[in-house]
Amino acid sequence: MKNLRTSLVFGVLIALALAVGLATREEAPESLVPTVENTGPQGLRALYLYLREGGRAVDAHTTSLESLALATRTLVVAAPQGQPVSKEEVAALEHFVRGGGTLVYLSPRELGQHQAALEDWLRLESGPLMPASNRGLDSNLADAGGTTLDVWIASGPLRGLSALRVSRDRGVRMGHEDAVPLAGLGGATAVWRWPLGSGEVYVLAGADLAENRRLELVDNLRFWDALSARGPLVFDEFHHQLAPPPPLSRGIWVFVAQVLAVGLLYTVSRGTRFGAPRPLRVERHRSTREYVRGMGWLMRRAKVERELLPELDRSLRQLMQERLGIPLTLSDADAARLMERGGNDYLDAKADLTKTHAQPAIRPADYARVVRRYAHLERLVTGRA
């Protein structure tokens, strides 16, 4: 008896702990990946929707950069950390830029960890920490963790801009001799331009300039307006996706096959025999036409109920309200005028229904005639006519 009581107490405690654990589910943390699907503060969803709703040609690229569309004018690679850009893709990017395209690379803050091939091609290194600046903001609390960059050379998409708002973090250095620093603060550079062939490469320190939380600050939005005005703009989403896991080794498949073979052998050796199979019994079901004929016979025998006729009109008016927005309170003449098609047919059908409803006895043929006319009106209202 004592053991039973102890078991019941422990069972109740375990059930309570399980209930508390299920009730206190925490919300998933906000995503830090700068993708066009991320609606959090560090996502790019706001920029993507702003450009699309503004009529600009913008799209998300979800395959390798070697298959970039020929019509692409600007490619944005926003701090990808899911999988590295391969050497073959770097060669495709160089061909794209030399042919007149524009590459905007928002480099990750941690250089040398995720995009070795791309950083070697662009010769990127971490720069000094940018000082704090609140120039262009209404208050110091509008963006507590950010800083305002000065536009040193207003060319290309920076033409006419004076300040950009980014996170107060480290800048970036570019090792090409012909690379030009365009914007920064103090001794830290955050925006570089590298002319290459007929195109150009813009390198930015971090994805802050495109994030949802800073898109509307100072001149950030005007920078993307200028880039999207050049032609079709594409966001690289492929390298934000995690690389697929390696395939299972052959030894695991051999082990699984051995387990299945042993289980099948045990089932065959220990399974119960049920004897020879019996012939399959064929069941013949009644056809739909027989059911329809039976319902018709039943209806003829039961006669037509007078209340069915007003129900036809109520059903049609309800459908007209749902599909066409014609209120039930309007008169039949006003409702017919608001119908795009079949207004006169509706008045004729309603007159026929009223006349039939006033008859002393309603024949099945009269009811069928009215039903056909209202069925035609339903097809008109639902667009199936």
Results as ranks from 00 to 15, higher is better:
111 L>I: 03
111 L>Q: 01
112 G>S: 10
113 Q>G: 01
114 H>F: 15
115 Q>E: 14
116 A>C: 04
117 A>Q: 10
118 L>C: 08
118 L>G: 04
119 E>M: 13
122 L>G: 04
122 L>C: 10
123 R>H: 12
124 L>A: 08
128 P>Q: 02
129 L>G: 01
130 M>C: 09
132 A>F: 12
132 A>N: 14
135 R>N: 02
136 G>W: 10
138 D>H: 12
138 D>P: 07
141 L>E: 15
141 L>V: 08
142 A>W: 11
142 A>C: 04
143 D>Q: 04
143 D>H: 03
145 G>M: 08
146 G>S: 12
149 L>M: 09
149 L>P: 02
150 D>F: 00
150 D>G: 00
150 D>R: 10
151 V>R: 04
152 W>T: 05
152 W>E: 12
153 I>W: 07
154 A>C: 00
154 A>H: 00
154 A>V: 00
155 S>E: 15
156 G>A: 06
156 G>K: 08
157 P>K: 05
158 L>K: 07
160 G>D: 13
160 G>E: 15
161 L>R: 07
162 S>F: 12
164 L>W: 05
165 R>F: 01
165 R>W: 05
165 R>Q: 06
166 V>H: 00
167 S>C: 00
168 R>T: 06
169 D>E: 06
169 D>F: 04
171 G>S: 10
172 V>N: 04
174 M>H: 14
175 G>K: 09
177 E>H: 13
178 D>E: 14
179 A>T: 09
180 V>N: 11
180 V>C: 11
181 P>W: 12
183 A>S: 13
184 G>S: 04
184 G>F: 06
187 G>Q: 14
190 A>C: 10
190 A>V: 08
192 W>F: 08
193 R>M: 12
195 P>S: 12
196 L>K: 02
199 G>T: 13
200 E>Y: 03
203 V>F: 11
204 L>A: 09
205 A>N: 02
208 D>K: 04
209 L>P: 00
209 L>M: 05
209 L>C: 05
210 A>H: 01
